[in-house]
Structures are given as structure tokens and as C-alpha cells.
Nucleic acid binder design. Structure first.
Lengths: 230, 230
DNA sequence: GTAGAAACTGACTGTGAGTCATCTAAAAAA
DNA sequence: TTTTTTAGATGACTCACAGTCAGTTTCTAC
């Protein structure tokens, strides 16, 4: 254990410490209302030091977000491993994403930073690349399930696995976002439980892309849905 | 025409002038990069004056956005009026939103301000109310088509019109957002045309919620899709 | 012990949202 | 016509905060 190695370790540790402080502050206040001074104070470092480790506030934010991506990827990978039938696995994707949404709401909210246009000014290209790589990895998992399902005759042969993944993921994401923002409003004004809508939407989609035989056999069809979280 | 009336008119006109300047600047630079000073200069007024007419930068932004909502509402209302069959009308909703997306991309992008959490700090409650009212109005149009379609046996009786509207709108919105941000990436890395995905997603959804007989009769099924915009 | 490198600091700069004491010109009153 | 009142407009100012950098401290090597 030479000195350079120890220093390298210490540097990495400092990076982590900063990231932990940032995560705490970002979770509490969101990107806009968090300040670098506050993060620095929590990390017991000066503001200048933060910039030795991270290029900008946004870079720091995205690095925290990547932890969320990792977490979600892990959850999805595990669910996929434990669900051999592609039809059921696809249904599990929806359930797992919902579970992630409930347990790690702060990370879920961070994800939408990427989608919000015009907020990327300060993000370094390398950071952008990291994020794209991470998302690609997770997309690949979902697309592969579709590909496998088509080969096994579970999904219709005329659907494109990538297209199906985009459709399922986009609508799931969009409805969860609505649950996060507007759940109470929909409940009050139109008596709609958006959580139910989320699962019905996924079910409707699967019914549309699965072959009738596979759908009839699928075990999720009569599964009990989670209760509303409102 | 008394003096108070004239003054009132002039005040309203000034409000509009400010709004026009703001729209131009926001369209060019987005919310973050636009400054009140720049808007003031373009409107040939001092910054202080802007705050006599609008409570905050965000209020001003949302007021511009409301113009976009109006525009979209008008387009949807007209399409609905000219399409008697609820099945075709639902398909038209997707086409009209796409047309809006293409022609008024700047407004489309503004819409997502509402969804982005934590950006609403500076928005006045009245402004929020206005936005909710506007969106409700447009939701109602879509929901009514579903309700009518169910009564006429075009849509399955076991679907809830509000739920169907949420699902269709959310997924459409989400895919358009992806087209806006990531169209080229998907084309390059996976050779996927997201515009096609958008229309296929809508078609898949309609197939799932329409009765088989109505679907067989629907005129949109074999319609030619718009070419990619990439 | 000392030279030099690496890590850290915090006062400083620049920017931009929002404020407010002051000014101006039009309307009302005299 | 002159004076008073008032609504509307102004822009210099404050305050907050991201990002910088000249200077300081701490650690390593010799």
C-alpha cells in the first residue's frame, strides 16, 4: 500500500463525501433552491473545494442522479432474472418502476432534469455521455425482454421490440410523473385514482402487444393491484 | 368613450406589448437564459414597469404559455367539430397534437414547465389556477369524445373515459417530448424513427380500447403516416 | 529541515431577479 | 390658465448565488 494509492483512495472518498452532502441537500430542496454554499457547509468543506471535484452544480446534480439510475437498473435487472416468462417480466417492469417511484421518489424526480430542455447549459459533455450510457444500459434490458418474448411467441411478431420499449416506458413515466404532481387533483375533481390508471395502462398495452394465447396464460392478468397511494 | 375606458384599454395594450416582447425572448432563449432586462429592453420599457404588470418572471412565462394552451385548445376543438365519428376523432387528437408540436414547438416546450417540479416557487396561486382551468377545458374535450364513443359502442364499455384520456394524452406527450430531445439519437443508435413510434403508439392504444367492429370500420387504420421529421 | 507539490480556502466578481424612492405627465380641481 | 393630485414609469440599488483564483496550509520527498 503505497502513498499514491492511499491518496487516490482519499480523493475518491472526498468525492463521495461531497456527493453524500449534495444528495441530502438536493433531496430536501431540489436543484433550484439548493446552494453550493449549503452543500459545502454540510460537507465541511469550502465552496472552492467542491469545484475541484465537480465541474458545476449541474454536474454534481447529475452525479447524484446516476446513483438513482444505478439503483433502478439493479432493481430491474433482478426482477428480470427472477421472472422467466417475458410476458410476466414485462408486467414486472411496470411494478418495479412503480416500486422505485414509491421508495425513491427523490431520485425519480431527479430523472426529469434530463428531459427538461434548456437546463443543460452547465453540464459537461462527459457527464451527458455518462447519463446516456446508463440509460442505454437499462433500455437494453427492457428491449431484450421484448426480443426474447417475440422469439418465444409471447409478443406479436409484427411489433418492434425497441418501439414497444419506448411506448411502454414513455407512458409509464408520464403517468407516474402525473401521479407525483397531480394525484390529489384528479382524485378530487374527477374521482380518478391515477395509480389504478398506471397499472391499467400497462395492462392495456401488454394485452395489445401479446399474442392472445400468451395473454390468456399470463399470470399477472388477475393479479391484485396496489392500492392508491393518495 | 370616457377617459377611464381609454386608460383601461391602454393598460391592456401595454400588457400585451410586454407579453409580445417576453414571448419573443422566451422563444429564443428559454426560461433560464432569458432576462427581465432583455425583455424590458425589447418592450422599450424599464424593468420596474414589467413588475407593475406581472408578478414575476415565471408569471410572465406562464402567461405566454397560456397563449399556447389557447392555440392548442382551438385546434383540438376545431378538429373535434369536423370529425363526427368518435373513433376517428380520437385518432385526430393524436394528429392534431403532432401538428401543434411541429408548428408551435416553442409553445410545446413551454408546456413542460408545469410538469417540472420545484420550478413553481415564484408562480402566483392565481396564475396556477388559470393554468389548471385552461388544461381542464382541453381535457374535457377529449374526455367527452371518449364518453360519446362509449355510448355509441365505438369504445369498449369497460373503459373509463377519463382514464383513457389520461393514458392517451400522457403517452402522446411523453413520446413527443422524446422526439424533441432524442430523435436523432434513437435514429442513429437503434435505427428507430420516433415519429413512427408516436403514431403506432396511438394506433395500438385505439385498437385496444375500440370495439373490434368499430375498429374494423375506422377510416384511420390504413391512413398514411407523416414522414419522419428528423 | 526544507523545497516543492497537492489540496484547500474564502474573499471576490459577475449576473440577474426583484424593489423602491423619485420623477413625469396627464387629469382634475381651482 | 394655474395649481394640485394621482397613476404610471423609471433605473439605481439590494440581495442571492454560481463560479474563480490568488494566497495559504498540509503533506511528501529528499
Amino acid at each position: 500500500m503505497g502513498i499514491p494509492e492511499r491518496k487516490e483512495r482519499e480523493k475518491e472518498q472526498r468525492r463521495e463525501e461531497i456527493l453524500n452532502a449534495a444528495q441530502k441537500v438536493f433531496f430536501e430542496k431540489g436543484l433550484q433552491s439548493s446552494t453550493m454554499d449549503e452543500i459545502a457547509e454540510l460537507a465541511e468543506l469550502s465552496k472552492g473545494t467542491l469545484y475541484l471535484y465537480y465541474g458545476s452544480k449541474e454536474d454534481l446534480y447529475l452525479t447524484v442522479m446516476l446513483r438513482g439510475f444505478d439503483l433502478l437498473h439493479g432493481m430491474i435487472a433482478e426482477a428480470e432474472k427472477e421472472t422467466p416468462s417475458p410476458g410476466d417480466a414485462m408486467w414486472m417492469m411496470g411494478r418495479v418502476y412503480f416500486e422505485f417511484f414509491e421508495k425513491h421518489r427523490n431520485f425519480f424526480r431527479m430523472f426529469h432534469f434530463l428531459q427538461y430542455p434548456g437546463l443543460h447549459k452547465q453540464v459537461s459533455p462527459e457527464m451527458m455521455e455518462s447519463c446516456n450510457g446508463q440509460t442505454q444500459k437499462t433500455w437494453k434490458l427492457v428491449i431484450d425482454i421484448f426480443t426474447r418474448g417475440i422469439e418465444q411467441g409471447v409478443f406479436r411478431r409484427d411489433i418492434n421490440p425497441v418501439e414497444a420499449a419506448v411506448i411502454l416506458w414513455s407512458s409509464a413515466n408520464s403517468i407516474l410523473l402525473r401521479i407525483d404532481n397531480e394525484c390529489d387533483r384528479w382524485k378530487k375533481t374527477l374521482n380518478i385514482d391515477l395509480v389504478q390508471v398506471y397499472f391499467r395502462s400497462n395492462a392495456l398495452f401488454l394485452q395489445a402487444v401479446m399474442t392472445p394465447e400468451a395473454y390468456a396464460r399470463a399470470s399477472f392478468v388477475r393479479e391484485e393491484l396496489p392500492a392508491s397511494i393518495s
